[in-house]
Structures are given as structure tokens and as C-alpha cells.
Amino acid sequence: MSTSNKQTADLARRRFLSGAVALGSVSIASGFTLYTASARPKGEPASSKIRWGLLIDTGKCEDCNICVEACKTENGWEGHRGNLTDPQWIRKVGLTDKRTGKKQSLPVMCLHCEYPPCVDVCPVGASMKRADGIVLVDRHLCIGCRYCMMACPYGARSFVHEKVTNQKPYMPRGQGTVESCTLCAHRIDDGRIPACVEACTKSGREAMLFGDLNDPQSAISKRIVQVSTTKLRADLGLEPNVRYVNF
């Protein structure tokens, strides 16, 4: 078999295997279907028919750090200095209502806005939104101007302030560039759910629901129809794809 034929055969086999593994429903907790997943075939662009989103139930979210730790482990980011120069792709925010004193805890990450200001302001087009709604930074284009960080109303982006080590092969990082939550695009493309959602669900809290907002049959779409959800800084009209409930 010639080299090119062998490569083609390998590619076809990989596509078949990844598709076979990923097709069908992804069930994390017993009896609870998160979303119907299918791996995106290699080389095929993300589809605008899909709009990935997250629904975070602050009523179920406890004062833990499971989602943050899962994100760190999955994506290989961690701060060493214990100050604001450390990266933070996802963070737990404690909230106290000024009038009632009610306390809440919730995770905040890139909200993958429908109209992301970080994408608007990036001078070189390194900040971008995939067709399926995931907002990313092309670290090969990013010049490290940090204008996107000035523009993000959620403080969701980090600038890599020092040399990075132990990078994951699927998640390249680089000193001097900006980074943020990718919604675990590499996992989604493989037909898996984001690491934070998986960890939260496995812990039994099930405070994070992931799925296709364009699919009316998805669990997330059905839940959004049933309950009143909150978009952070809705006044800015950015239409974030990460929403909150019981907030």
C-alpha cells in the first residue's frame, strides 16, 4: 500500500472509530441524558446549525471548586504566583445580595456571547467566534495587545504573564497571548461534554447543563423554555450563550 493510500485508510478508520464511539446519547448520570452528541468529522468545519450553550443552576451550585479544578486539569492552566497575574479560565464567584443578605455561589467563565465584544475589538482577528457559537483565541495570531480583555464585561480572559509548562497537546498556550474558556471545543468536537460540566455532573450536583441551544429537543433548550433564565449584563445586548437559572 502506498503511503498516501495508507494515510487515507488511517484517516477513514479514525473517522469511523470516533464517530462510532461518539454517536448516540451521552449519559453521565444514570437516567439523565445531557445531549445527543456526535463527533465532528475531522476536516469538517463547525456548523452554524448548532449553537452550543450552558445553563448554570445556581440553586444547585455549591461552594465547591470542582468545575475549576476540572478545567485546570483538562486544559493545563494553573497559576503559580497567587495573584492577579495567574490565569483563570473559570472562577467561582461568591455573591451576597446587598439588601437581603442571600448568599450564592456560581462559576463564571467566557460566556461565549452571540455578539462578543472581544471579537469586535481584536485588531488582528485573533479573537473569533466559531460557527457553532464558541468564542476562541487563535494563539498563533494573538499579538498580546489585551484590548479584548479591556472589552470583556465579564473579566473572562487571562493574559499569559509567564512561561508555560506542561501544555496539553490539544490545548496550546503561549506566554504573551490571551486565553480563555474554550468550552472545551476539543472535547465537543470529539463528541464529549466540557470538562467542568462532566465534573459537576459526576459530583452529583448537576448544576451545569450543556447542549445545543438551536435544538428544541435538547435538554438545555427544554429547560430554558421551562424556567426563567438570567443573562449576565443583559443590558449590553451581547446575548451570552452561557445563562444562569435561580439567580
Binding site: 471579537v119 469586535d120 475589538v121 481584536c122 495570531l141 499579538i143 493574559f159 503561549g174
Partner: peptide, 19 residues
């Protein structure tokens, strides 16, 4: 952050950016 990528700033433009 990446001075070495100055050429990108000179060749790749997002015209929606005031920058």
C-alpha cells in the same frame, strides 16, 4: 505580549476594531 508578531498587526486586520 508578542512583539515578534508585529508583522501580523501590519498584515491581518479586523476592520470592526477601532484598534
Amino acid at each position: 505580549g508578542r512583539v515578534d508578531r508585529l508583522i501580523i498587526a501590519m498584515t491581518s486586520y479586523n476592520f470592526k476594531s477601532i484598534f
